[in-house]
Design a protein around this nucleic acid. Sequence first.
DNA 1: ATATAAAATTAGTCTTAACTAATTTTATAA
DNA 2: TTATAAAATTAGTTAAGACTAATTTTATAT
Lengths: 217, 217
Amino acid sequence: MYTLSEENYLKSIYRLSQQSNFKITPTAIAESLKNNPASVVDMIRKLTDKQLIEYDKKKGVKLTPVGLKDAVLIVRRHRLWEVFLLEKLGYHWDEIHDIAEELEHISDATLADRLDKFLGFPEYDPHGDPIPKANGKVPKPYSVTLADLKIGTNCRVAAVKDTSSSFLQYLQKLDIGIGTNIKLLEKITYDNSLVISINDKENTTVSQKFGENILVD
Amino acid sequence: MYTLSEENYLKSIYRLSQQSNFKITPTAIAESLKNNPASVVDMIRKLTDKQLIEYDKKKGVKLTPVGLKDAVLIVRRHRLWEVFLLEKLGYHWDEIHDIAEELEHISDATLADRLDKFLGFPEYDPHGDPIPKANGKVPKPYSVTLADLKIGTNCRVAAVKDTSSSFLQYLQKLDIGIGTNIKLLEKITYDNSLVISINDKENTTVSQKFGENILVD
DNA sequence: ATATAAAATTAGTCTTAACTAATTTTATAA
DNA sequence: TTATAAAATTAGTTAAGACTAATTTTATAT
Ligand SMILES: [Mn+2]
Ligand SMILES: [Mn+2]
Ligand SMILES: [Mn+2]
Ligand SMILES: [Mn+2]
């Protein structure tokens, strides 16, 4: 149906549309895919011709209903495979993303639904991201970050925004995973560092960037 | 490591080297991959440069030790995924080959071994083909076909040579699968058709071609 | 309003992996 | 042995999807 590149662009545009309200520009897409804006312009033309996106210099790139539906299905496959890799094959949560980047492109009409069933219809992937349903409905993702909380609040780690190995391995070192209980004790005025207590244990200080990449419940 | 095309060529050359002693020519490879001999000549040059094959006009194409090792690993992945698709996701044996053709190219150092373990280290894939071991050893495949048997012999279906949907669906209709018991009752002299009894049930006549594509134990 | 910087676009190049058409080499049959 | 057919190879083309460099458009700051 789609080429590998087309799918990666669709997914990238979808992700950008989810993670903020900024205009989706060729440069933004180029950054997210780590390629050249000139290449992006070419692909924008191609996807526009295929009626998967619309591009307006003022409004930026938008997925059409068809483009959105298919982007969501790719994300669905990605997240289901991540669950499989972690739960069935015993990978750690910092190893699964790159493999799922390849698996998500396997095209078979019933594969995702069978995998979904096999995994017991999981709601969230191992990073706390919601898994789109077979009908294309996407459960609402978590949106409040650790950095948004008021001093003294207790919370549960629900998801991570950054899925890079370095961030996930740092979390592992701090004994933080999905479900971990965190209490925000103090915000350092100087640089917005956060003093937290992890699972009621001794205090730890983390950066603002760190706090902004943890979604809580 | 390798491109999709390189992997498909390696696998194709490996398969040709397994299924007969004929010289592996550009034309033979072209047929097996359904593409043009001219394209094959290009790729032979490329794989030769990479020292994965050797090509001699007299002897044809041969895999080098490195090429052989990697071809076997691709086949290993293919067959393991076939087991997964059948046993875990509930596909039928005529549906799995094409999906495994895509899955076999997922490259991750430990994926095949984890999958192998998850599946309980299966010896054979759903078509009866032996699954190469992690160390590259390939169990000996079955080699005696139904057409090779003497009249009156009883046998167990061990593997199928042809994995096309049409053949597998025909087998399904006849209630023949891996493990089915077959007794060869008669060979029709005229066209080598075979009269067989399936699981001791009523007699059926099948073609010579059919008999040559069933491997027995 | 104008200068400057950033973003978008165009033009042209490259690589991979296919193809067709033409040619050369090798095998086969009369 | 020679004619013919088949196979292999070469030459040239195409398409996708990336790139760089140059240019044009748009945004931002003085
Ligand atoms: Mn991921
Ligand atoms: Mn994830
Ligand atoms: Mn197969
Ligand atoms: Mn098989």
